[in-house]
């Protein structure tokens, strides 16, 4: 079969497209998140989200980025509701 111009499946935008905005904002919110954790941490994702008035999914995404680059560390165990607590990584 030659290339018949049949419609191909598009690239997934859910991974690369929609998250781009969250990624774009990551450094812009970093100081606020880190200041909050410094003052009131360790906190769960919903607690961070509530304190800063941001969606929990975004808060999680950003926190995971900060964990990845060792600015934030997670608690060893989750609480009874299944949430880990995040704090400034003092070892950084």
């Amino acid at each position: 079969m030659k290339d018949d111009g049949r419609e191909r499946f598009p690239e997934s935008v859910a991974i690369s497209g929609r998250k781009r905005e969250t990624a774009r904002q990551e450094f812009a919110v970093r100081a606020r998140v880190l200041d909050l954790l410094r003052e009131k941490g360790p906190l769960t994702v919903p607690e961070v989200a509530q304190a800063l008035g941001i969606p929990a999914a975004d808060a999680h995404w950003w926190l995971m980025g900060f964990v990845r680059y060792n600015q934030v560390k997670a608690s060893e165990k989750a609480d009874d509701e299944g949430y880990y607590r995040y704090a400034i990584n003092e070892a950084k």
């Binding site: 808060a59 999680h60 995971m64 964990v67 880990y84």
Partner: peptide, 16 residues
């Protein structure tokens, strides 16, 4: 893995 634990992306909760 990207997170230290298996967490759901919506709020970082451990899925049950």
């Amino acid at each position: 893995r990207p997170f230290n634990y298996v967490l759901r992306p919506g709020d970082g909760k451990t899925p049950a």
